[in-house]
C-alpha cells in the first residue's frame, strides 16, 4: 500500500511517500502565494521523482496551515497529530517533540504508541517562530542558512529582551548600530526563541527523549540554545523538516 502526506506550511510545502510503511522519498518546495498550487506541485514533483503514477495513491492526508486548501486528499489533520506520528515513526522511543515552524511553534508530548498526550502552541504572535528568525536575518543582512554556524562563534550572546518581533527587530538594529558583533546578536536571537519555546515546553511538562522538528531544527544555534535552556539533550533527525509530512503519510495508512 502506498500512502502520502502533504504538509503545507506558511513558508514551505513538504510531501512524503511511504510504501507499506517504508519511506520512499520526500520533497520540500516554497509555498508561495497559492497553497493549493503548492500542494499539487510538491506532490507531483515527488511522484515524478519516484516514478510513481498518481493513480497508485489512494490514501493521502494533508496537514499544516494550508491543509484545507489541498483538494485531492482523503483527509486533513492538524500538524500536532502528524508531527506526533512522524516522530514516533522515525524513532519510537521519542516522547516529546519541539517543532518550530514558520508561524507556529509547538511542543507535543506523545505516548509509547505515538499518540498525543498533550501539546502547547505559541500564542498568536510571531515571537518564537521561524518568521521571527526571518525578520532578524533580514535586519542583519545574513543568509538564514548561515545563522546556526555563525552563532556558535559568539563570545557572549546579546540580550534581546523584547518579545514582540517588531520591537525585537529595532533592538537588533540598535545593537548593530552600537557595533555589537553579529555573532553575538544572532546568538542572542536564538536565546530569545529558546526562552519562548522552553516556557511552552515546561508548561506541557516535556518528557525526554526530545526531538526537534520543523525547518528551524536545521539551525544548530537554536538547538544548542534550547538544550542549554531546558537542560536536556535534543535530537534532530535528518528528516526534521519533513517530519509532519511523514507523519501524515503514516496516518494515511489507517484510512479505511
Amino acid at each position: 500500500m502506498i500512502t502520502a502526506g502533504i504538509d503545507i506550511g506558511s513558508i514551505t510545502s513538504k510531501a512524503a511517500v511511504l510504501a507499506d510503511g517504508k519511506l520512499l522519498g520526500t520533497r520540500v518546495i516554497f509555498t508561495g502565494y497559492n497553497s493549493e498550487v503548492a500542494g499539487r506541485r510538491v506532490f507531483e514533483e515527488l511522484l515524478e521523482e519516484l516514478r510513481l503514477d498518481p493513480s497508485a495513491l489512494r490514501k493521502i492526508i494533508s496537514t499544516g496551515y494550508g491543509r484545507n486548501s489541498v483538494t485531492f486528499v482523503n483527509k486533513s489533520m492538524t500538524e500536532i497529530i502528524c508531527h506526533g506520528a512522524g516522530a514516533h515513526y522515525l524513532n519510537p522511543g521519542v516522547r516529546s517533540i519541539m517543532d518550530i515552524g514558520g508561524q507556529d511553534s509547538k511542543v507535543i508530548v506523545i505516548d509509547e504508541k505515538g499518540k498525543v498526550k498533550n501539546f502547547s502552541m505559541n500564542d498568536k504572535c510571531a515571537a518564537g517562530t521561524g518568521r521571527f528568525l526571518e525578520v532578524m536575518a533580514r535586519a542583519l543582512e545574513v543568509d538564514l542558512d548561515g545563522f546556526g554556524t555563525l552563532s556558535l562563534k559568539a563570545g557572549s550572546p546579546s540580550k534581546i529582551s523584547s518579545l514582540c518581533t517588531v520591537f525585537a527587530e529595532s533592538e537588533v538594529i540598535s545593537l548593530i548600530s552600537k557595533g555589537e558583533r553579529r555573532e553575538n546578536i544572532i546568538a542572542g536571537i536564538h536565546e530569545s526563541i529558546a526562552a519562548r519555546v522552553a516556557a511552552m515546553a515546561n508548561r506541557v511538562g516535556i518528557v525526554p527523549p526530545v526531538v526537534m522538528t520543523g525547518g528551524v531544527a536545521k539551525n544548530i544555534g537554536v538547538v544548542k540554545a534550547m538544550e542549554k535552556k531546558l537542560g536536556v539533550s535534543i535530537n534532530v533527525s535528518p528528516y526534521a523538516q519533513v517530519n509532519g509530512a511523514i507523519g501524515a503519510a503514516v496516518l494515511a495508512m489507517g484510512i479505511k
Partner: peptide, 20 residues
Amino acid sequence: FSESQVATRIDAFMEMIKQR
C-alpha cells in the same frame, strides 16, 4: 482573534481527545 490559528488549535485538541 485569529480565526485560522484558533481553528488549528481546536482541530488539534479534538484530534488529541479522539486519540485519547
